[in-house]
Design a protein around this nucleic acid. Structure first.
Length: 299
RNA sequence: GGUUCCUUGGAUGAGUGGUUUAGUCAACGGUCUGCAAAACCGUCUACGGCGGUUCGAUUCCGCCAGGGACCU
């Protein structure tokens, strides 16, 4: 099938701005389906805390990649890229459009621009690196990178240990410098991509976020957090809303503090999303209240 | 009316006679190529007003303004 006349419409923007509602209306108007680009809504155990589209919303428009994984499973931007590229031909077979809606910046970029091919890290390599880190600290990791990939050391933030560990893992796994695998090239896609960013006045956005957190709690966030408490060490639960609730449950903070911390961390997250998306020159910015007609009119 | 205490950046709250005036919270800006709602970095110099002492005052003294406590 020739998909070059097909269009992937990306709806991006900070959390809480109203991406889900806009995407659903847009998809309904176009007879399209929705690809969720959200690194946490993929987990089926935590729909409330991740503000995943509800059953009613999903009944209106078919959603993909919402709740299709368990919190115990590994998932990544690279897997998401592959999954979406595999799915798109199917969507384009019945529609000229697909709507990708999501706040996970790296996931959106993975689909739109591609991610360089990296080896999957084996458990042996991962354990080895973590063990070395535990035994002799970050200095030990840096020392090895000095030998294996000095170029990366020059550009990486040396205080960001997560990146250093990851770089060493890849060097060891691949047998070549991590830097040599980072081409930075944008992969061409066999379909059109148009990007729209939703944004609104900061005070209004923060107000929406604050109220959404209260609504989540009323909707059962506490129960959701309680049912995942035993698994709280999982990366999938290193998520705004859960780390704070779990901290409350383990006695590290009181409930009100946890609730307000969730709001604060969500606001910070929204700002980080905006920082990322602002850099994207291909993004067209719209206010959510007028986004639908603007997008439909521009297609 | 009397006695006494207080007055610091968006909030809170330390502190000092003089090169860089804490901390916390909030806010703001940024980084980002395989866990990304993650991880990380940066920014915000204020001492209520007016005078005085002093080489120099946010820090000492006086007066004024605002606030608190106690007494009558």
């Amino acid at each position: 099938m020739d998909t070059r006349e097909k269009t992937l419409i990306v709806i991006a923007g900070p959390t809480g701005v109203g991406k889900t509602a806009t995407a659903i209306e847009l998809a309904e108007a176009l007879g399209a389906e929705i690809i969720s680009a959200d690194s946490r809504q993929v987990f089926r155990e935590i729909p409330i805390g991740t503000a995943a589209p509800t059953a009613a919303e999903q009944a209106r428009v078919r959603h993909h990649f919402v709740g299709h994984k368990s919190i115990t499973e590994y998932y990544s931007a690279a897997e998401f890229e592959a999954d979406v590229l595999r799915l798109l031909p199917t969507l384009f077979a019945t529609s000229d459009y697909a709507v990708m809606c999501g706040g996970s910046m790296l996931y959106v970029d993975a689909v739109c621009k591609g991610i360089d091919l990296m080896p999957t890290i084996s458990p042996e390599v991962r354990d080895k690196v973590l063990r070395q880190y535990g035994e002799c600290g970050i200095e030990c990791i840096i020392a090895q990178l000095e030998l294996l990939d000095p170029d990366y050391l020059r550009i990486v933030d040396l205080k960001n240990e997560k990146r250093l560990l990851h770089a060493l893992e890849i060097c060891l796994q691949a047998g070549v410098p991590y830097t040599s695998l980072r081409t930075g090239q944008v992969k061409p896609r066999p379909f059109r991509i148009v990007k729209y960013g939703l944004d609104m006045e900061r005070a209004q956005l923060f107000d929406r976020i604050n109220r959404r957190v209260d609504a989540m709690i009323e909707a059962g966030l506490v129960e959701e957090a309680r049912s995942t408490y035993e698994l709280r060490h999982l990366n999938s639960l290193n998520t705004v809303g859960f780390k704070e609730m779990h901290a409350w449950m383990s006695g590290e903070m009181d409930f009100v503090t946890a609730r307000e911390r969730i709001k604060k961390n969500t606001r910070v997250y929204a700002k980080r999303q905006l920082t990322w998306y602002r850099k994207d020159p291909t993004m067209t910015w719209l206010h959510p209240t007028c986004a639908l007609p603007a997008i439909l009119g521009s297609l």
